[in-house]
C-alpha cells in the first residue's frame, strides 16, 4: 500500500522516536504508516531498491541461455526460474513503494546509474555450465543472505523475503542438479562444470559484501534489525555449506587455502580479491555496460505497450462514465 507519512509536530517527535525504539527493542515489525526516522526510511529504500534491481538485472545472464538449453526439460526449468526472478523484483519494488517512492523513480535511478544492483550480475555466462553454477552458487549465496531478512524489522520487506525464499530453494537445487549431470557426464562436460565453478566461486563470496571492518552500513543496519548477521559471518556460513556440496558434485573449489579448522569449527579460506570487487562496483566489470544498456533498451521498447494499455484503460473508464 502507499505510504501515508505522518508528520509529527516538534512536541510529538520525541514520543514517536521512543515508540519506534521500543518496537525495535521488542523485536516488533515497523509497518508503512508507522513513524520512522528519515535515515531508517532512506536506508531501506536504498537497500530494497538495490535488491529489486538485482533481481531484474539478474534475469539477463541466465536468459542468455534459454534458447540454447540442452533439453526441453532444462529449458522449461530455466524459463520458470527467470520468470521467478522477475516476480522477486516486483515483490521488492512494491515493498520499496510502501516507503513513499514511486516505481518510475526507482527504475529511472537504475537506468541512470544512481542506484546499484549486485555486482555478481556483471560477470558473463560463457557456457551452459554457468547456468548451473549460478543456480548453485549465486542463488545459494542469495538464500544465505535472504533467510535472515525474513525477520527484518520492516514488515513489507520481511514479507517479500518470505515469498522469495520459498521460491529460491528450487533455483539452487536445479543448479546443483544441472552441475551434477555435467560433472558425471563426459570428460568435456565435467571440465565445463569445473571451469564454471572456478569462475563463479570468488564472485559468489563477494556477494556478502566487504569485510566487516570495512562495511560502512553494517553497524547501523544491525542496530535497526534490518541486518541480523554480519557480512563475514554469512560468508563463513556459505563456505561451510558449499564445501561438502562441492564434494558431492565431484568438483573442486578454486582455493588452495580452503581447509577445515577443527578449533574454529569452520572452514578456513583464502583472501578475497577486493580490488576486483571494487573495480566491478565502479562499473569496470566485464558486463556492466551491456547489462544496463539491455535494461534501458527493454524499458524503452516496452513504452508503446504501457501506453497502449493505459489508453485502453482510459477509453473504457470514459465509456463507463
Amino acid at each position: 500500500m502507499t505510504a501515508i507519512q505522518d508528520t509529527p509536530g516538534a512536541a510529538g517527535a520525541v514520543g514517536l522516536q521512543a515508540a519506534f525504539d521500543a518496537a525495535l527493542a521488542n523485536d516488533e515489525r515497523i509497518e508503512p504508516r508507522d513513524w520512522m526516522p528519515d535515515k531508517y526510511r532512506a536506508t531501506l529504500i536504498r537497500q530494497i531498491a538495490q535488491h529489486a534491481h538485482s533481481e531484474i538485472i539478474g534475469m539477463q545472464p541466465e536468459a542468455n541461455w534459454i534458447t540454447r538449453a540442452p533439453s526441453l526439460r532444462r529449458k522449461a526449468i530455466l524459463m520458470a526460474k527467470v520468470q521467478d526472478e522477475a516476480g522477486h523484483g516486483l515483490y521488492l519494488y512494491s515493498a520499496a513503494e510502501t516507503l513513499g517512492v514511486s516505481r518510475d523513480e526507482l527504475l529511472d535511478k537504475l537506468h541512470t546509474g544512481r542506484q546499484k544492483y549486485s555486482s555478481i550480475f556483471n560477470y558473463p555466462t560463457l557456457t551452459w555450465a554457468d547456468v548451473g553454477a549460478i543456480g548453485w552458487l549465486v542463488d545459494g549465496a542469495a538464500i544465505t543472505n535472504q533467510v535472515p531478512l525474513c525477520r527484518c524489522s520492516y514488515g513489507p520487506y520481511a514479507r517479500a523475503m518470505v515469498r522469495v525464499c520459498k521460491e529460491e530453494s528450487f533455483h539452487q537445487r536445479q543448479g546443483f542438479e544441472s552441475l551434477l549431470a555435467l560433472s558425471r557426464g563426459t570428460e568435456a562436460q565435467h571440465a565445463m562444470a569445473q571451469d564454471a565453478v572456478d569462475r563463479w566461486w570468488w564472485p559468489s563470496l563477494m556477494m556478502f559484501g566487504p569485510p566487516d571492518a570495512d562495511s560502512t552500513h553494517s553497524a547501523q543496519s544491525m542496530a535497526w534489525n534490518i541486518k541480523r548477521h554480519s557480512n563475514d559471518e554469512l560468508r563463513r556460513r556459505f563456505v561451510d555449506i558449499c564445501v561438502p556440496q562441492a564434494e558431492a558434485l565431484g568438483l573442486t573449489l578454486p582455493d588452495p587455502d580452503l581447509r577445515w579448522n577443527e578449533e574454529r569449527g569452520h572452514y578456513d579460506f583464502g583472501a578475497i580479491d577486493w580490488d576486483e570487487f571494487n573495480e566491478v562496483l565502479r562499473g569496470n566489470g566485464p558486463c556492466n555496460e551491456q547489462r544496463l544498456a539491455n535494461r534501458r533498451r527493454a524499458h524503452d521498447e516496452g513504452a508503446w505497450v504501457r501506453e497502449a494499455a493505459f489508453a485502453y484503460a482510459s477509453k473504457h473508464m470514459e465509456a463507463k462514465g
Partner: peptide, 30 residues
C-alpha cells in the same frame, strides 16, 4: 483513476473453504 498506472492490492483464496487473504500489491492500468 484516469489512464495512469494504478496500484492494486491483491487478495488470494488459497483453497475453497478459506477466505481471501492479502498477498501483496502490483501495478496495472485496469
Amino acid at each position: 483513476m484516469s489512464g495512469q498506472d494504478q496500484l492494486w492490492e491483491v487478495f488470494v483464496r488459497s483453497r475453497r473453504g478459506l477466505s481471501h487473504t492479502h498477498a501483496g500489491s502490483l501495478h496495472a492500468p485496469d
